[in-house]
Design a protein around this nucleic acid. Structure first.
Lengths: 231, 231
DNA sequence: CGGCGCTTGTGAATTCGTGCGCTAGGATGG
DNA sequence: CCATCCTAGCGCACGAATTCACAAGCGCCG
């Protein structure tokens, strides 16, 4: 019963290991070394071993890890041995896509309700569910014992929706809206901003362009200022 | 011309600052302190100052930062002063949503092509664009001078699509497929896995449940083993 | 024109994350 | 039953990121 706290960085990798492990199991392989797991997950093998050591000592020296057992341990640690009912607020482009996303179901997250405020949407059928109004959030959370809410609304509505969710008893929020939301300390929030990653890519892309120019001998002034500032 | 390299951690926050700054500008405020910016971005003010110091010394002591000027500097550094044509591969749930996502356009990313291999989809009109076949990727990249590709395919197809993109000349990839893809060193890849964040939430949620039990005095055995392992 | 208050920018200390390199120890074969 | 091989687990050192605390500097007011 290793109940110590798992580092944030490790937490972000466990789901990746889990996916690799499940794929490995499906291929009929019953044992995997940290080396193979590392390669499939795109990380360093020392990192894999350190990460897995937070779960306990589940490997066998000279052999590796038992795939099925490790899957169980990772699932247990991540809390994926149970099904999590999930509520999605905001049935726009993204909410629509998430409601139909099979990756959630495959990992034990069951979308049990969709809510919105748009009259044209409320009552519509999306991904096997009827869209309900935001005002029903209390009832939905209470009757469905929903702990996790996903916000896919426009930025302007995010805080309001978060407040309503918290009031209804939601304890974890995944926020896709490009806005910082504030909630009581007891509520966990995680944010995914689809455009942030693109902006980071743009940074590196621009940087490559500058480097290419330098390499091609174009813009000698650029070269001078570049090497000067690098120093 | 601060051409030194910006830390990864800072890069992830610059887009957030940028969004806050733009909102601030829209409200007519022309100056902002690191303290206010920090609060709006949900971080520590020292972090804001250190992050911004990587761009140069654009603040005024005793006053703060000029909002408009700072917006320009952040945009310049991130490479957002130009438009980036983007190619989306995989027009399923997610690809569909991204093709219509206004947040991309608002930040200078223009979706110029959608590709898929599904005959039923090729030729269809999605978000103002006609879906084209994967085989046309070379032509699309060449004629549109597209540097950034987004992968929204199922996991199984991700590597193949990535290979085709790279062969066609794509230099940056944003991968939404739940799979690790490998590309030449010259290509930058960033990954967004929608279900990873949910899995992390589940971890914290489960942890809260355990803590609640302990607090309620339920499961004294749990309490014992918990405190033992915490020590 | 000098002092005061405010806020930036940054050295320094600390924490957190990474990765090397080695050792401990189980499995396997003779 | 012993020797050998293989790989997990871990100590340690290094580097990155965070945070504190303060000096430097700007503007404003008297």
């Amino acid at each position: 019963m290793s109940e110590r706290t798992i580092p944030e960085a490790t937490l972000g990798r466990l789901p990746v290991y889990l996916r690799v492990l499940v794929e490995t199991a499906e291929q009929g392989t019953s044992t995997i070394s940290s080396e193979s797991l590392a390669e499939a997950a795109g990380v360093n093998s020392a990192k894999v071993r350190k990460d897995l050591s937070f779960l306990g000592s589940y490997g066998t020296r000279g052999v590796g890890y038992d795939v099925a057992y490790l899957i169980h341990q990772v699932r247990r640690e991540l809390g994926l041995t149970q099904d999590w009912p999930v509520l999605i607020a905001g049935v726009g482009n993204l909410g629509h896509a998430l409601a139909n996303y099979r990756g959630f179901v495959a990992r034990g997250f069951r979308v049990v309700a969709l809510i919105d405020v748009e009259p044209a949407l409320v009552g519509e059928r999306v991904g096997g569910l009827v869209v309900r109004h935001l005002d029903e959030v209390d009832e939905i959370v209470a009757t469905g014992d929903v702990a996790i809410g996903v916000i896919c609304t426009p930025a302007g509505a995010a805080q309001e929706v978060a407040d309503r969710m918290v009031a209804a008893g939601i304890r974890s929020i995944l926020n896709f809206a490009p806005a910082v939301i504030s909630v009581p300390q007891t509520v966990t929030v995680r944010k995914v901003d689809l455009s942030i990653e693109l902006q980071i890519l743009a940074y590196y892309e621009q940087r490559k362009a500058v480097l290419d120019e330098v390499k091609d001998g174009r813009g000698s002034l650029g070269l001078a200022s570049f090497s000067a500032s690098v120093t």
